[in-house]
């Protein structure tokens, strides 16, 4: 019954929370740049407007992939928030992302293809760190189940500070923020128009936006696992990490894909794998 409630809560509340977070993000970004900024509810207005617009497609199947992107993101989120296996969550999330990349390839515009290729490179960059984070959590709590991980009596970041750092390092890729907004971004017109989402318009673009809200909440939930033993402190720290990501977004320029890939692997190896090797000797 509890699982059922958490699934319903995620499906209904996550898009609202995600949209409000996106609105707060735009407001804070505007204030950092000395602007007034749009209203907090602006992301809702954007999506509702997109629903009213005509949907132009290059190939019909591109929208089909976007539908599956949304469905699998929701599926992944429900797995996560109902406390299921963390590994399954990671693989389902990868599958969802792959659907999105396929949609970008299917649209066959040069910009969306460049965006899709960069999205694949980004996946190569962040997937090892996400899997290492799951491994680190397993080594501490002896379980891959999220219910067991959150009921562990000490906060996990005591044991996994390196992994937390590596995870924060790759978070801008998942939120598609500078310095890693290579695949698609509102701020890269000259370089790649709108990247993967270039050829999507109207309803399918609205679906992509909603899927991102779900995904952002899921990723913040993942960050929250590091501080899960106290809910209030956990939420506060997770939100402050989100704020940190916004500051990073406004501070750094976009990097090249080589830099994104190499730096995240170096960070993953040094801090992620280093942390796990350290744990291996300490917890033995």
């Amino acid at each position: 019954m509890k699982i059922f409630i958490s699934i319903i809560a995620y499906i209904t509340l996550a898009p609202f929370l995600g949209a409000i977070l996106a609105g707060v993000d735009r407001k804070i970004t505007a204030r950092m740049q000395g602007r007034v900024g749009p209203p907090i509810l602006q992301p809702f207005y954007d999506v509702l407007k997109l629903m009213e617009k005509e949907s132009l497609v290059v190939r019909k199947s591109q929208n089909f992939y976007v539908v599956f992107f949304l469905i699998f993101i929701i599926f992944t989120g429900t797995l996560f928030f109902s406390g299921k296996d963390l590994l399954l969550v990671i693989f389902a999330l990868t599958l969802a992302e792959i659907f999105f990349v396929l949609g970008g390839y299917k649209a066959s515009s040069p910009y969306s293809i460049i965006g899709s290729q960069r999205a694949l490179i980004q996946m190569m960059a962040y997937e090892p760190i996400i899997i290492l984070a799951a491994v680190g959590m397993y080594m501490v709590t002896k379980s891959f189940y999220i219910t067991d991980i959150i009921s562990y009596d000490k906060p996990l970041f005591y044991f996994l500070p390196g992994l937390l750092f590596a995870f924060i390092y790759i978070l801008p890729m998942k939120f598609s923020k500078s310095p890693f907004d290579l695949a698609y971004s509102h701020h890269a017109h000259q370089e790649l128009v709108k990247g993967m989402t270039t050829e999507f318009s109207g309803r399918s673009l609205a679906m992509i936006e909603v899927a991102h809200w779900y995904e952002n909440i899921l990723m913040l939930g993942f960050v929250g696992l590091f501080f899960a033993n106290n809910i209030l402190i956990g939420v506060a720290l997770t939100l402050s990490i989100y704020f940190l990501i916004i500051i990073i977004d406004n501070t750094f320029a976009r990097v090249k894909w080589e830099m994104a890939l190499m730096s995240s692997w170096i960070v993953g190896l040094l801090f992620g794998l280093g942390n796990i090797i350290f744990l291996f000797f300490v917890l033995r």
């Binding site: 505007a30 900024g37 954007d46 709108k194 673009l205």
Partner: peptide, 18 residues
Amino acid sequence: PRYDLERLGVINTGNPKH
């Protein structure tokens, strides 16, 4: 920043499809 059209929700998209 001085006039800030984005406060009205305007985004400069650079993409005709959006």
